[in-house]
Amino acid sequence: MSNTPEISALRREYVAAGLHRDDMLADPLAQFGEWMQAALQAHPDDATSMTLATADADGWPAARIVLLKRYDADGFCWFTDFRSEKGQHLQQNPQAELMFYWRGLERQVRIRGRVEQLTHADGETYFHQRPRGSQLSAAASTQSHPVDHRTTLEQRVAALDNAHAEGVIPCPETWGGYCLVPQQYEFWQGRENRLHDRFRYILTASGWMLERLQP
């Protein structure tokens, strides 16, 4: 396969300050919190966007962008339709990886772990915090499944809106949240000449182990 010259010739230089072992906190969640705050200050609209990578029972991978909605000592949470492709994957193989990329800061964080489904009460609480239009779209759509035409979706949304014009839109049992419980973190800082800084935290029986990785 030949390279496309317009792509292969592209270059970018990383100029951010380095990342040293002494800079890294003992708790990777606290380290993530510092980086997230910096990202929120620099680019608040995109800071919580993360790539969610899953794989089905046969090992076929899939990745997509979702939004982080909560993170704490219990894990990293997002919400979706359980019938979606990611929902089906997580039912077959409840292991996943999250990746945050903050271009302006030349930083990347990868978080790997097992995924647990949140309670319906958790999903319902967040569902009713969303704008009404988002609630209607989520309730009317069977995410990732084929549909004959966009008009069909629009008609479903309109019918649901009319059916609940005077009341609350019920949160479907098929919609809710997931929580990834970290077993590994990797923090990446871009550096000149591609000699990037990478640090990995691995959860062991005695706590978090920190090691530097080659770029």
Rank of each mutant, 00 (worst) to 15 (best):
M36L: 14
P215A: 15
A39C: 09
L98C: 04
A138C: 05
A96E: 13
W175G: 12
P28E: 08
E13F: 03
G133V: 00
L136D: 03
M209Y: 04
S144W: 08
C77D: 08
A38Q: 15
E13N: 08
P146D: 00
M50T: 01
V181F: 00
A16L: 09
S137C: 06
A16V: 06
Q91I: 04
D56Y: 01
M24Q: 07
F79S: 05
P146M: 02
A38K: 10
A26M: 06
D56I: 04
H89V: 06
A140L: 07
F32K: 11
Y201S: 02
G177E: 08
P5A: 01
W175H: 07
W188Q: 10
G75D: 02
A205M: 03
A26V: 08
C179N: 02
R107S: 03
D27E: 01
L98D: 05
T119L: 12
Y178N: 03
T125W: 09
R64G: 07
V15I: 12
N193V: 05
Y14M: 12
A139C: 12
A63L: 04
I169W: 12
N162Q: 13
Q91N: 09
D161I: 05
G33Q: 13
Y14C: 10
T51L: 14
V109M: 03
P44Y: 13
D148Y: 08
G18N: 11
L19V: 14
Y178V: 01
R212T: 05
A205W: 06
D197Y: 11
G167L: 07
F32M: 10
V147P: 00
H145L: 14
T151D: 15
E173N: 14
P44L: 15
Y71E: 08
W188L: 12
R103N: 14
L98R: 12
G176R: 08
V168H: 08
H20R: 14
H145C: 01
N93A: 12
D74N: 04
Y71R: 01
P215V: 01
P44N: 13
A138M: 08
D197A: 10
R200D: 00
L153G: 03
A42E: 15
